[in-house]
């Protein structure tokens, strides 16, 4: 690993200052992806700004039917939170299936959302639930936030502080893991929530997470697995690699969507 300078700010202001001061500074929110990337010399940030000690950034709370999850909340915290379980159990279930137990104890929701790995689980939930991504400067809707592979609407120096989710009437996530990495080969999050009926797909898209319009229409008319019969997912824009060609991924989107609807 190349040398780097570690910072552990106690406030957002200090974090912003460190991010701005560093030549090529980046946020360390859990590091379960970042540190592996650095070990392989694929990333070499001059400064790491660890945001986990910032007061309140790991809090999980609900205000009525609106859930707020601090960016530094670990996957384990989300999975085991009674508040999350109460407001949006599908999200707790999703968190309990990310990585493995040791990774879940360190990886965070903010880190996952900011990284926008095309095979990560959280982006599907954010998009399907119509979540709001809260940063130190503004609030961004999930629709506007995820811009493509590892790409988001975040500006330089901008820090995610929380995500906000309105309780859906129904929601569930079904993941088909890539056999080696156990990331999503195809993950489908279905929700009947604040943004209406939504179907968000991760793992499969060449540009990262996306909404599956035909399935949303079918489910909007009739929320049942049967409503998806004959609604094929298009192969256009889907990834093809050794673990799954586009046609297989398209097929799995349909299968996982039905399984998610049945579970919701």
């Amino acid at each position: 690993m190349y040398s780097t300078k570690y910072h552990k700010p106690a406030s957002i202001a200090d974090a912003t200052a460190a991010l701005t001061a560093g030549e090529d500074a980046t946020i360390l929110a859990g590091g379960q992806t970042l540190l592996a990337t650095m070990k392989q010399h694929l990333a070499s940030p001059s400064d790491l700004v660890d945001i986990r000690a910032i007061d309140g950034l790991s809090d999980i709370s609900a205000d009525g039917n609106v859930l707020t999850i601090g960016a530094a909340a670990t996957h384990t915290a989300v999975a085991s939170s009674a508040v999350v379980r109460d407001v949006c159990p599908a999200l707790a279930d999703l968190a309990s299936g990310i990585g493995d137990p040791a990774v879940r104890n360190v990886g965070t929701i903010g880190g996952s959302v900011a990284n926008n790995d095309p095979a990560a689980d959280y982006p599907a939930a954010m998009l399907a639930l119509g979540a709001t991504i809260v940063t130190n400067t503004r609030e961004i809707t999930a629709d506007d936030f995820f811009e493509g592979l590892f790409s988001t609407a975040l500006e330089d120096g901008e820090i995610i502080t929380a995500v906000k989710i309105t309780a859906p009437a129904k929601a569930a996530y079904a993941k088909f893991p890539q056999p080696a990495s156990l990331f999503a080969l195809v993950g489908v999050f279905v929700a009947d929530g604040a943004g209406g009926v939504r179907v968000a797909v991760t793992g499969a898209g060449e540009d990262g997470v996306f909404r599956q319009g035909a399935m949303e229409s079918a489910l909007g008319a009739n929320w049942s697995a049967g409503a998806l019969d004959g609604v094929a997912a298009s192969q256009d824009g889907l990834m093809s690699d050794m673990h799954g060609a586009a046609d297989y991924r398209a097929h799995l989107i349909a299968v996982m969507a039905k399984r998610a609807v049945s579970a919701a």
Partner: peptide, 22 residues
């Protein structure tokens, strides 16, 4: 599960546990 895969140029595609299934 397991298979070593090279692309046509001889680059190893299964170079870690992210792609070689143990």
């Amino acid at each position: 599960l397991e298979q070593v895969v090279y692309d046509d140029d001889g680059q190893l595609l299964t170079g870690s546990y992210m792609d070689y299934t143990m």
